[in-house]
Design a binder for these strands. Structure first.
Lengths: 209, 209
DNA sequence: TCATATAGTGCTCTTTTGTTCACTACTAAA
DNA sequence: TTTAGTAGTGAACAAAAGAGCACTATATGA
């Protein structure tokens, strides 16, 4: 349970966060001391001890720059040490390792709390409006888990005759269909002669205005 | 322009990333050396020099644990040092500083590339289906910028007679309306006697399955 | 008045950590 | 054969950085 911080402790925590954001690593005791005009490293250490006790940070013993900001502290807007950056892939194919993919167009930071173990995930920008009734709009980023294990009703990314498509997956009695979520499009029955494969299933969507 | 890494360089970069994810701070030269069975810190330094030259990392001079992984490197799945964690607020009111808000229900990591300067943003979980035609579904997380400067057509979070609502904003000739995006709901004309205020406007949406 | 908490000081010591130099060995390309 | 790049070794040195102790001053509550 996180208890209230004193004003000074809060200042110091905010400084650690902003230093870390700016520099990419945590400040040392002496850097904190210098910023606050504190002459003694022990004075800083007292504050860090208090912040640790109150659950805001973790400091490993005798490790330089070992201040780690804990996730989900009381602070309402914060930077934490837990995040995931996924590649935005412009083209995908089934079975190709993501790492071998040469069509990375950028990266997208997402909350790893929603990503299952393993890092065979990627992001894909939506083109087209065939899935708008599922709340999937053109320009959305889909977060996709690379897999070919799908269940009826899953939203999948599939490869069909050289094209990538996002649709609901349906397999009834061995007949595979890709079902749009837009009444302006018809379901696609996957012919036995089609070049068809599942690239992955949807984990989430991110849309930015 | 990032050039290809040797196998060894790639291994070392991957180690730095995973160490950093696990521990919350970068490894030291000696910790890298120990992992790879390299007896000399200079051997490690050579690799770090090469990674720096190829644009994958930045190492500040004479700074302990000063290895910073650069964003958007060639690596297709990676952890970076640039992310933002927003509070998920259960209740919001106009004009109340986010930091003073006591209804934080969790946090949501988002990509800061899509967030404008300043950190008066928060996340809100959607209840209801009044905006489904705008691709906003129950359970979605909205990323909201706290502001009362709105434009016709913006999706806003508003406070109306004690309730929080998400709707399109419309102001025609001084008559303010909140327009749903679901034909099952009627537009709300904001009466002059209503307690009404704008909490913020939408920046993005995140949905997880 | 006393005890406790907060916020330091001053200093020393220990440990961690990075830099540098001269060197070896191997591989590949010119 | 020579040159260049890669992948180190070994060692010393310098600097950064954390830990700990005895101490002071102030404020607050019992």
């Amino acid at each position: 349970m996180k208890t209230d911080l004193t004003d000074r402790q809060k200042e110091i925590l905010d400084f650690i966060v902003s230093f870390r954001t700016e520099r990419g690593y945590a400040p040392s005791l002496r850097q904190i001391a210098k910023h606050f005009g504190i002459a003694s490293t022990n004075g800083v250490k007292r504050h860090l001890d208090a912040l640790t006790k109150k659950g805001h940070i973790t400091v490993d013993n005798n490790i330089s720059r070992g201040i780690v900001i804990n996730r989900d502290e009381e602070e309402v807007v914060s930077y934490t040490d837990n995040f995931l950056s996924l590649p935005i892939l412009g083209r995908v194919a089934a079975g190709v390792p993501i790492e071998a993919n040469q069509y990375k167009e950028g990266s997208l930071v997402v909350d790893p709390a929603f990503i299952p173990s393993g890092n065979n995930c990627f992001a894909l920008k939506v083109k087209g409006d065939s899935m708008i009734d599922a709340g999937i709009f053109e320009g959305d980023y889909l977060i996709i888990k690379q897999t070919n294990e799908v269940t009826n009703g899953d939203v999948v990314v599939a490869h069909l005759d050289g094209e990538v498509t996002v649709k609901y997956y349906s397999n009834r009695g061995g007949i595979v269909s890709l079902i749009p979520a837009n009444k302006n499009y018809r379901p696609i029955v996957v012919g036995v002669d089609s070049q068809f494969s599942i690239v992955g299933t949807i984990l989430g969507i991110t849309r930015w205005y």
